[in-house]
Write a protein that binds this DNA or RNA. Structure first.
Lengths: 357, 357
DNA sequence: TATAATCCGGTAAGCGCTTACCGGTAAGCG
DNA sequence: CGCTTACCGGTAAGCGCTTACCGGATTATA
């Protein structure tokens, strides 16, 4: 008996129950696989669900279960742009998000994402709103001040990426220091370069600070001279990297033999700027990145860099958040290992791949 | 009088109301800016909210308002891989998603994303679950069969990207045909190439079919000979593109003077494969892409391609979905214009930028 | 000063779902 | 064959929020 259709309002389990001739409790039980409904009951319900194309309302379920099965993910969207339409800065972020998603899917969670512009105001408010729609939050680098994070963390479980744990929030990051050390050693010991420069990332990034410090220490240990300081301040973007090179060159500075960049994005901009000036990489100046973003291998020359297990980073972040949500515990600070990827921008010939010690 | 803290359970507007000494209705009104509460009342509520770090539960609001302020976005995650770790295929998708987000944020919506692997089963079930958590869905290319979309569309508002509208779902796409025509004309008329090839994308993609057809028609109109067919079948990935070239070359085929690729990803793989064989682009073979993905300009040589207004595409998709959600209407099929971006892979020298017809 | 017009703010219903609790029926037992 | 034990499945409460409705207090009007 084909119904004339029922596109009215939203349909609920009451509609399904009515159609199947059972109670709403039975519908719910069948849909959740709870209890032990008679085979016939189950069939009637399933049949009705199919006929009506019924889907349970997530909000109602969440309210009733106290679990939304949603993780909020917050990150920054790129700032200033040098190359028109440049937006590669989010490559890195997207790979991590993919990792989060992988972890999330294993638990039936979905990702609720919200990006924030560099000069958006009311960031905290936006994040708070997100918090209300999710069971927990994962914050990418530099989204909020430490106090902001702390405050947020007592309304909802929070995991930060590449940050620092607070009393209430957890953190996951990569072993930046060992990556930089591997790079410096490769450049100084394997290639014999004696002068190094470091184009840094945003000054307020914990990751960047760690990398800079490791750079200074390891270079000193290896006996190389270094160039750093305000003139070398980038901001994780290709534009920032290009800008450093141009400023340096315009000021008539002589570049060091090898330049480490805070991340691949920056290296991309640096290589680009160098090419503009007719400076050859790696013959005149060797360049390295950090992250091993997917495009790194397609640059000319292919970029020697440090691979962060970005996808695992994301997956790990989710797992930690999940255990916090369901159990309440969670390791405060998790560090993942990195790997040296030797390609050609450092002066090596082939595509050999070493390993971060 | 500093409370000893109240980390117990979740806090609700009852807690806030209690603390502020008002009713829950007042709390709700203040938080929503409804009614005209006395200044004092408003202050007390705000104060209590601040002290408790209170955030309204999204699920409860959604249930009560009948609006979740969430859009579901579904897309495919990359398939086979040639270059280790290749995952650039999602570049394109991510840019569109960024556009969706921009549109969404204007309305206070957030994006609930869910990617699907090429060989995941129960795709329909996963999407249905997503549907329950969102007010509407945006589906990227080739997520579901036409009937699948139709069925989905009568449980929740649906907008497809680069697809075809169904009775119940809306669609947004770019003007593929005119892009291909511009490319063919540039190659044949401006450069004088007489033989063209087309490395196609997934055979089941409407976009791809349109592009192929436009290619054939325009090439015929321009009087060029063409190479197509099974040997030229790619799949939108760099791996697919590289594979086509290798197979062709291994079979001893002579390549046409210019090759159009179904998308930038494919072009990337093609250029890579050509370089492996020592074939020069554009001297020996001219290559063009489609999409103008961010990295296109950083390839060697920089890629001549068709720019799709990807971000606008996403934003537009959201706007249409939004109007469907709130009003019920919505244009069934929206077509956005594309633009020819002339760089060097076609044989042009500088970075001049023409325009699609 | 009495009465009507305004304002605020409280009470309670209801959004769609899950599930504790309980009653009815069928099966098991002496 | 009557009573206990299971087993199903229905009723109803409650998740946290919004808001219609209404009563009390305040201010305006006569």
């Amino acid at each position: 008996m084909p119904e004339p259709k029922k596109p009215k309002g939203t349909l609920t389990i009451y509609d399904v129950a009515g159609r199947a001739g059972v109670s709403i409790a039975s519908v719910s039980r069948v849909l959740n696989g709870q209890g032990s409904p008679r085979a016939e009951t189950r069939e009637r319900v399933l049949q009705a669900v199919r006929e009506l194309s019924f889907v349970r309302d997530g909000a109602a379920r969440a309210l009733s279960n106290g679990l939304k099965e949603v993780v909020g993910v917050v990150f920054r969207r790129g700032g200033e742009q040098l190359f028109e339409g440049e937006d590669e800065s989010f490559l890195f972020i997207d790979v991590i998000n993919r990792g989060i998603e992988v972890g999330a899917q294993r638990r039936g969670f979905d990702l609720l994402i919200s990006s924030v512009g560099f000069n958006d105001d009311n960031v905290a408010a936006r994040i708070a709103a997100l918090a209300g729609k999710a069971d927990g939050l994962i914050l990418h680098d530099r989204m909020l001040s430490t106090v902001g994070i702390a405050r947020l963390a007592d309304m909802v479980p929070v995991v930060t990426l590449a940050g620092t744990p607070t009393p209430a929030s957890l953190n996951v990051r990569c072993d930046n220091a060992s990556g930089i050390r591997a790079l410096v050693r490769h450049l100084v010991i394997d290639h014999g370069y004696r002068s190094l420069g470091y184009v840094s990332g945003r000054a307020d990034s914990p990751d960047n600070r760690t990398r800079l410090r490791a750079f200074e220490n390891e270079a000193a240990a290896a006996g190389a001279t270094i160039d750093t300081g305000p003139a070398w301040q980038g901001n994780y973007s290709a534009a920032g990297g290009a800008n450093v090179i141009e400023t340096l060159l315009d000021a008539g500075k002589k570049l060091p033999r090898a330049i480490l960049c805070a991340n691949d994005q920056t290296a991309l901009g640096v290589i680009h700027a160098l090419a503009q000036r007719g400076i050859k990489v790696p013959e005149d100046v060797a360049i390295t990145g950090f992250d091993d973003v997917p495009v790194a291998r397609h640059l000319h020359p292919p970029l020697t860099t440090i691979r962060q297990p970005m996808q695992e980073l994301g997956a790990k972040a989710f797992d930690i958040l999940y255990s916090r949500i369901s159990a309440g515990g969670g390791k405060a600070d998790t560090v993942l290992p990195v790997e040296l990827i030797v390609r050609e921008s450092c002066g090596c010939a082939g595509g050999a791949t070493g390993e971060a010690k």
